[in-house]
Design a protein around this nucleic acid. Sequence first.
DNA 1: CGATATAAGACTAAATATATCTTATATATC
DNA 2: GATATATAAGATATATTTAGTCTTATATCG
Lengths: 154, 154
Amino acid sequence: MRLTRAGEYGIRCVLHLARHGKGTLVSRKEIAVRTDVPTHFLAKIAQQLSRAGIIEILQGANGGYRLLADPSEITLLSVIEAIIGEISLNDCVGRPESCHNSTLCSVHRIWNKANQQLRATLQETDFATLASEDACCLTPFPEADGHNRPIEKK
Amino acid sequence: MRLTRAGEYGIRCVLHLARHGKGTLVSRKEIAVRTDVPTHFLAKIAQQLSRAGIIEILQGANGGYRLLADPSEITLLSVIEAIIGEISLNDCVGRPESCHNSTLCSVHRIWNKANQQLRATLQETDFATLASEDACCLTPFPEADGHNRPIEKK
DNA sequence: CGATATAAGACTAAATATATCTTATATATC
DNA sequence: GATATATAAGATATATTTAGTCTTATATCG
């Protein structure tokens, strides 16, 4: 009952892009290094984010990824569900046909409620807010030591 | 990000016991058949429920399981966490040391909030309430066909 | 004591998650 | 157009977790 690593990595990726803002191209390699995600794994995750319309992928020399929307428009929920599919805390939430009678089921109702709450909380959160604060899963904001500084926008 | 089968089975087990009320002894076999849980798997789950103080296990001939508390005192959260451990929706929630600085992390804060909400919702729900209504994961309440009837209290 | 029922843990199988590797394709630059 | 660089896409491999089964031991009733 825990977010997968792929989901976690997806958040980190978008968070890093969000710091650069909408439209700024960042290479896969830079993102991978900064967010501590294996390069090839990041590629797969990026493909999912791309299919979901969250980022755009540019191939070729000087290629990379960039956000298609303003960070304030991108919710935590959309990023997570782009990676792991729609959240369902219990099997019967996602596949009501797995029960004989889920509409009447007292347990099912609780799971539905909890699921809705969770999705609502994740939807309330946007990446502009997240990016404006520090995050433990990324290298810190630009600072004294220099080589930790994000690449400048062009 | 989904409840495991063991967790689901634990709920079914307690739900079935709750229908019989606190203290009523029900054989493992009956529970297994009624809740559609493999007998030996149920045994393992019962041990966890027992360690958590939710049920009592009686060995020997005419053995079985019984609730130690009134169903109204047993929450959905306690049963689930007896089986799968404390819920943590993201790794950093359960193991803050997995991040360099989780107290300052914006993402971490959201997961904490979501986690608390989820646990609160599950804690609000007790098994008296759940048992008073139909549940899709169990054979129905006693009814016309006869052989689906719960065993009488002794 | 014998029959019955669960305990406890070893063991197996299946599913899922995680990571990597390889070949193909796209783009910038010369 | 040729070359270098970067990502795409999917196959493959590994590890972890989940799910289920089996065996031997133990407890209780009658």
